[in-house]
């Protein structure tokens, strides 16, 4: 694992992955949107409004998987003190916060015509909102301390404590009586959705994951450059003194 702790090696690997991830990400978004808007059936109950699902559900999946990613990088950073793991978590947090906000807003836009309200304090919506605040808290902790090591440790601990929220989000629709509908894809008895709807949904899910891959690599490269700048400035100051 420490093989990629070398920033130069990591940058080389990222530069190899990025063009492919960008290409397949764009293809996945284009194909997914085409199927979602023009080549999938309307729902027998929700009608055409079901097309909002192809944006909302993959955003919700991505918001949870990115949080999981931050939790894993936090664990690796705390246990093995892997320097790039800390940067990966820091780089992922703004992307996760943005996608979680999108999941909440697109959910509200879907909720208004379906439930008659943009928002209700039910368990699913509230637990996702808590995750959004966890993302903000994680990023705020990084900004709150001058020493990056200390800030990274504090943020990592918060991220690990917040992991308890992930099963709450997933099972909230089963544990409590919620306005949000129960799971229709990840069920023990298989998805309750036709293949024509599952196809665009999964393609959009892949598109969001590729989007995250591209952005987290860009932001990690940016964080590495920032560290280089900091080190070069410190050297320059030391030489002047």
């Amino acid at each position: 694992m420490h093989r990629f702790a070398n920033p130069a090696k990591f940058n080389r690997l990222a530069d190899q992955i990025l063009p492919w991830a960008i290409f397949f990400g764009l293809v996945a978004f284009a194909t997914g949107i085409y199927y979602a808007l023009f080549n999938s059936p309307a729902d027998y109950q929700q009608g055409e409004s079901v097309r909002m699902m192809y944006v909302h559900v993959p955003a919700a999946w991505a918001s949870m998987s990115i949080y999981g990613f931050i939790a894993v990088t936090s664990f690796v950073a705390l246990v093995w003190r892997h320097p790039l793991a800390l940067l990966a978590g820091k780089a992922a947090a703004p992307i996760g916060a943005t996608i979680t906000a999108l999941a909440l807003i697109t959910g509200a836009l879907w909720g208004k015509p379906m439930w008659g309200t943009y928002w209700q304090w039910d368990a699913r919506m509230t637990s996702v909102l808590v995750m959004f605040f966890l993302y903000l808290g994680y990023s705020a902790l990084w900004q709150a301390m001058e020493d990056d090591e200390k800030a990274g440790r504090a943020a990592s601990i918060l991220a690990l404590v917040g992991v308890v929220n992930l099963p709450i989000i997933k099972f909230s629709v089963e544990w409590w009586n919620t306005l949000h509908q129960s799971a229709s894809i990840m069920r023990l008895d298989g998805p309750s959705m036709p293949a024509e709807m599952l196809k665009p949904l999964f393609i959009m899910g892949i598109a969001y994951q590729l989007y995250f891959t591209v952005l987290v690599l860009w932001r990690m490269k940016m964080e590495i450059s920032k560290r280089k700048i900091q080190a070069l400035r410190q050297l320059a100051t030391a030489n002047e003194a």
């Binding site: 409004s49 909002m52 955003a59 992307i95 943005t98 697109t106 879907w110 591209v214 932001r219």
Partner: peptide
């Protein structure tokens, strides 16, 4: 019912936010 306002807003907002964050990053 006509859901076009909600559908267009959902797609336009998501596209703008995702593209904006990507360009900024």
């Amino acid at each position: 019912a006509d859901y076009s306002f909600y559908i267009i807003t959902t797609y336009a907002l998501s596209g703008a936010v995702l593209a904006g964050l990507a360009i900024f990053s």
